[in-house]
């Protein structure tokens, strides 16, 4: 493993924020840490960045134990949610700031910086101040700045949370593309599942300081190991009576299926979500692409459900 974390623990005032977390990341891999607020993901990032001292645990990067290194000595770059750009410096000065600490002279550094700005589609903006840029542009500057020193590990702390939906999608793919191009080991923290799924090689799901599940995206979605994973990821239909669950896509309309009544529906543009009442009184939901027209409330329909058993899950 290129990056190895073992037994990472952090307490604040007797409250355990990160509890004995261990995981590894391969070189060039993009790991997403996913979880609700307060689950400890940002703390892990801070510990990796060197801004917070862990109470216990080790961090080994490319074979070197960096657990006790201060932030300025770690070959790690962080992009913060608020970008942390230097407001009093121009874009180019922001981007090349880190280069002077690895001994690169200004002229050379500027060349490198301009190249990097091209890569993030910001050519021409070198001399602007951060306050003159839009949110999306500022974010790109932050990424460029973090990458320019060729760190061994890139950390992104909810970098897209401050942007509107469309921009988020755009930048998301850009980040993924750059990450691939530089083949840089990356950890991306988010609370947005769709985001996590779309870019991650692996996802680490966390809750209340504990590592809940660590797997590839599809694996996490299709084989949740705990009830929390099931709940947090995607939408679920619960059938407590029969101790089983199904995803919304496990319910599909078929004439061979059992009879159900449409209780409600929600038009969501691309898809329509239906709430159905089964013959034994369970309420389930399903989605269907907006193609064939809609069912009306009260209408009787036929659907098949692929249930999975609940007891396979840990708590």
């Amino acid at each position: 493993m290129f990056l190895e974390i073992s037994n990472l623990t952090k307490k604040y005032n007797n409250k355990t924020v990160v509890s004995n977390v261990s995981f590894g990341v391969e070189e060039g891999e993009l790991l997403t840490i996913l979880g609700p607020s307060g689950c400890g993901k940002t703390t892990i990032l801070k510990a990796l960045g060197g801004f917070v001292k862990s109470d216990d645990g080790k961090v080994i990067l490319d074979g070197i134990d960096i657990t006790d290194f201060p932030a300025e000595e770690r070959p790690v770059s962080t992009v913060f949610q608020s970008y942390g750009l230097f407001p009093h410096m121009s874009v180019i000065d922001n981007v090349i700031y880190g280069l002077k600490f690895i001994g690169i002279k200004r002229k050379e550094a500027e060349k490198i910086g301009i190249e990097m700005l091209k890569k993030v589609h910001l050519q021409g903006e070198e001399n602007k101040r951060p306050s003159q840029l839009s949110g999306g542009q500022q974010q790109r500057v932050a990424v460029a700045r973090g990458l320019v020193t060729r760190p061994k590990l890139l950390l992104l702390d909810e970098p897209l949370s401050n942007l509107d939906a469309k921009l988020r999608l755009e930048l998301r793919s850009e980040i993924k593309a750059i990450q691939r191009e530089f083949n840089i080991t990356t950890i991306f923290v988010t609370h947005d599942q769709e985001e996590a799924f779309s870019i991650a090689d692996k996802i680490m799901l966390m809750n209340k300081g504990e590592l809940i599940q660590f797997s590839r995206p599809r694996e996490l979605y299709e084989n949740p190991t705990t009830k929390f994973s099931l709940d947090f990821i995607g939408s679920v239909n619960y059938d407590e009576k029969n101790s089983r669950f199904s995803r919304l896509e496990d319910v599909y309309f078929d004439d061979k299926g059992e009879e159900m009544e449409v209780l409600d529906y929600s038009f969501k543009g691309q898809i329509i979500e239906y709430t159905l009442l089964t013959s034994d009184g369970t309420t389930i939901r399903t989605v269907s692409l907006n193609r064939k027209g809609e069912f009306a409330v009260g209408e009787k329909v036929n659907a098949i459900v692929n249930w999975s058993p609940l007891d396979k899950l840990d708590k």
Binding site: G49, E72, T78, F80, F86, F101, A142, T149
Partner: peptide, 8 residues
């Protein structure tokens, strides 16, 4: 933090 992160 960013500055330190970048090596300062």
């Amino acid at each position: 933090y960013s500055a330190r992160d970048l090596g300062a």
